[in-house]
């Protein structure tokens, strides 16, 4: 087991290398000269542009730029943001707690709402609870996060005045205010994912309930609840685990619209601003961190497969 984990973590290195090449390649395709954007309203001055390019090595061939960057990263330095000139690593570290907190809260909400709703929906298939659960879940899915967010702010902050509309307070500083500032965005993000969980749980449960061994178990007279919990759910969880890893990864790489609505300083806004400002060191830094997260999460998913179904361990 330990060797398996070590080997998988080892695979992270080629993945990161591949991601960094991918991003540099896309830079080549992307229009928008970073020097032009950095120059702001001073962009008309060729001298200014030449100076920026020289300073950031933008006038060198892309391969050289890449090797320079790679050399620094291997030495443990993610470089400086071109736009705000702060170290990329420091900015990312500063955003990590809020991003992780929000992601975990949203993920918990999604699990707590989505999985039970999916189970209920499968148990009462084609009856009222199924229709209601489906309707609510899909309505949640078709509502843009931006919309739901604004509605929540208008209701709970502007009209009722119960929750702060924006800002973020770190957990360590004041956990109650911290939860108050993150509960609405976590809810917005969580409901969207809850719909996904609900649909997958439902489908997998329907399938599992039809399996022979569940029927046998039922025939043996085991209480319905035990059957559901022990046998059906266990098998139903495989797609949910796959999706869970993916969705948690998406959450951890930031949700720009939701962050924007609630003014939460997370990864989503960071990466979008970095892309729009062609702040490539920042883009690279955030993407590398995200890639590590995905590799780890998928590893966790694979380990969970084995826990759920021991037969999969050989695979």
């Amino acid at each position: 087991m330990a060797r398996f984990i070590a080997a998988r973590l080892g695979q992270a290195i080629p993945t990161l290398w591949f991601v960094s090449i991918l991003i540099f390649g896309l830079q080549l395709l992307m229009p928008g000269d970073p020097a032009l954007i950095l120059a702001g309203e001073e962009r008309g001055d060729p001298q200014v542009l030449a100076q920026i390019r020289a300073e950031l090595f933008l006038d060198r061939p892309l391969v050289e730029q890449y090797l320079r960057w790679l050399g620094r990263v291997l030495a443990g330095d993610l470089g400086f943001s071109w736009r705000i000139r702060e170290p990329v690593a420091a900015v990312i570290l500063a955003k990590l707690p809020v991003t992780v907190q929000l992601a975990l809260m949203a993920f918990a909400i999604a699990c707590l709402l989505g999985i039970p709703a999916g189970i209920a929906s499968a148990l009462w298939k084609d009856r009222a609870p199924d229709w209601i659960a489906n309707g609510v879940a899909l309505a949640g899915l078709s509502t843009p996060n931006f919309w739901l967010g604004i509605m929540l702010i208008l209701l709970f902050s502007v009209h009722l005045g119960w929750l702060p509309p924006s800002g973020y307070v770190p957990l360590a500083e004041d956990w109650r205010r911290s939860l108050a500032t993150t509960v609405m965005p976590a809810f917005v993000l969580g409901t969207g994912i809850a719909a996904v969980f609900m649909r997958h749980t439902r489908s997998a449960m329907v399938q599992a309930l039809a399996e022979d061994y569940v029927r046998t178990a039922r025939a043996k007279g085991l209480a319905e609840r035990v059957v559901v919990a022990k046998h059906a759910l266990r098998n139903a969880l495989i797609p949910v685990v796959t999706l869970g890893a993916l969705e948690l990864g998406t959450l951890l790489s930031g949700a720009v619209l939701t962050e924007q609505v609630f003014t939460i300083p997370g990864f989503g806004k960071l990466i979008v601003d970095a892309v729009f400002n062609r702040d490539y060191p920042m883009v690279q830094g955030v993407v590398l961190v995200t890639a590590v997260l995905y590799v780890v999460l998928n590893l966790v998913a694979d380990l969970l497969y084995a826990v759920i179904d021991p037969r999969l361990r050989t695979a």
């Binding site: 993945t15 890639a291 995905y294």
Partner: peptide, 30 residues
């Protein structure tokens, strides 16, 4: 399984980590 699985899996990870926005802007220009 084996290296094919690893290759495809890590390539998918890389794709997931690459922001959609970058891909979209690059494709829009291209």
């Amino acid at each position: 399984g084996g290296w094919v699985d690893a290759l495809i899996g890590r390539a998918a990870d890389a794709m997931l980590a690459c922001p959609f926005l970058i891909l979209a802007i690059a494709l829009a220009a291209f």
